[in-house]
């Protein structure tokens, strides 16, 4: 009985509140202001993108005579063709550096994360703190010694030099990202796998990796994006023959000052792989698959 009365009262109280809120004139004004700000931001962000797309499909002469946001009167791919001439090789370089660099850093990070989350050893925590600190390291601070090292290894102006550097410097971030996922693998599973006759590495291969595919994919996508977009190492270590696409695009802007259609086409070409990656990998990044492992209670 009492409960019932309680519910009634709270419903009344709720109604009273909504009634109170509605007529307040300044709330309506606030809403209008919110929408205005949101629309302003939308335009602010989307307009350059719109301009980029429109310009990339124009002929060079039309670029000169029209505003960037008007659609082309005559749609053409000539900007894309010229851009590809300049970006062809660098895109290949970027592709190789991205795939192998991301794979390398994810592999190293994964092994580190596994050891740190599932095996107790001395200085375990010290090691982890050092790794976290490393993710905050500003790369320009170590750029000169790094360049000297890469030179000494005879890897300057070489794709594999970039792959090596990205693997190593991406590793701390990958470790931090994956450690969280690996910590969620129940210890009972690891123990059970030991009882079933498996050593540390067999457990990693047969139990931990298959149950944390999402962690691997997420981290891999993240690494791909950051390596693909990276410029500092690319500029300093890439040299001439193996300069990645980010650098080539920058040069495109520098050398052909007036050809905006080519520059815009180049920008879009460079942005495309990252967009595609997110669209196709998106579904893997959503759901978990750890259920059913241990006692459901």
């Amino acid at each position: 009985m009492q409960n019932h009365v309680g519910i009634e009262r709270s419903r009344e109280a709720q109604q009273a509140q909504t009634v109170k809120i509605r007529p307040r004139w300044h709330m309506t004004v606030l809403h209008i202001v919110y929408y205005f700000i949101m629309v302003a931001f939308l335009v602010f962000y989307m307009l350059p993108f719109w301009g980029t797309v429109m310009t990339s499909f124009k002929t060079n002469s039309e670029v000169m005579t029209s505003t960037p946001i008007t659609p082309p009167t005559e749609w053409t791919l000539e900007g894309y063709a010229s851009a590809m001439e300049e970006l062809g090789m660098p895109l290949m370089t970027s592709l190789v550096v991205t795939i192998f660099g991301a794979a390398g850093s994810v592999f190293l990070g994964s092994v580190c994360a596994y050891a740190l989350s599932k095996w107790r050893f001395k200085l375990n925590n010290v090691f982890f703190i050092a790794l976290v600190a490393a993710t905050y390291l500003p790369f320009q601070a170590i750029l000169i010694p790094l360049l000297q090292t890469i030179n000494a290894l005879n890897l300057y102006d070489n794709v594999w030099g970039l792959v090596l550097v990205h693997s190593v410097f991406g590793m701390p971030m990958c470790t931090v990202m994956m450690r969280g996922y690996y910590a969620d693998v129940p210890d009972a599973l690891i123990r059970q796998a030991m009882i079933d006759g498996n050593g540390m590495w067999a457990i990693y291969r047969k139990i931990v990796l298959p149950n944390t595919m999402i962690a691997t994919i997420t981290t891999f996508v993240f690494q791909c994006t950051s390596i693909w977009n990276e410029m500092l190492f690319a500029l300093v270590l890439g040299g001439y023959d193996s300069k990645p696409a980010t650098i080539a695009l920058n040069e495109l802007a520098g050398t052909m000052a007036a050809e905006f259609n080519v520059q815009m086409a180049g920008s879009l070409i460079l942005a495309l792989p990252v967009l595609v990656l997110y669209i196709f990998m998106g579904k893997y990044l959503i759901s978990g698959q750890m259920s059913g492992a241990v006692t459901a209670s």
């Binding site: 059970q192 796998a193 009882i195 050593g199 298959p210 750890m290 492992a293 006692t295």
Partner: peptide, 20 residues
């Protein structure tokens, strides 16, 4: 002797079935 070399079979209180 590490557990994987003891040749034991065990059932854990938490089942610990491999979800994959």
């Amino acid at each position: 002797v590490p557990p994987q070399e003891r040749n034991i079979a065990m059932v854990f209180q938490e089942y610990a079935l491999y979800p994959n």
